[in-house]
């Protein structure tokens, strides 16, 4: 159909305008929404959740790293029949022997 014919039909009201699919307004994602509102996201709590629901592993080497969290401040050491609890504070690792 040429443009002239189309415009004539449009002028006579012979063209039905089909409604476009309704489009939802832009959603702010859940993650963004929580960040904007200052909420702690589930992803941030996930490490804590996983650490608390598992047993802490023993190690057989003396810790030398600098811990980043309370859980990392405590280390269970086992070497042969030597059992120790290592605790990091005042910038160094300290231990006590266990039975």
């Amino acid at each position: 159909m040429d443009e002239k014919t189309y415009k004539e039909k449009e002028a006579k009201g012979e063209v039905e305008i089909t409604e476009q699919e309704k489009v939802a307004p832009d959603d702010v994602s859940d993650r963004e929404k929580k960040a904007l509102e200052g909420e702690i996201s589930i992803e941030e709590l996930e490490p804590l959740y996983h650490l608390l629901r598992r047993l802490k592993k023993t190690v057989n080497t003396v810790p030398t790293n600098t811990p980043h969290s309370l859980l990392e401040q405590l280390v269970f050491y086992e070497s042969g029949t030597t059992y120790r609890l290592y605790v990091y504070f005042d910038d160094t690792w300290r231990f006590c022997s266990l039975t």
């Binding site: 039909k9 039905e16 305008i17 089909t18 476009q20 489009v23």
Partner: peptide
């Protein structure tokens, strides 16, 4: 029936 269908969201 002549119909006109539009798109304007991309």
């Amino acid at each position: 029936m002549l119909k006109l269908e539009t798109k304007n969201n991309f």
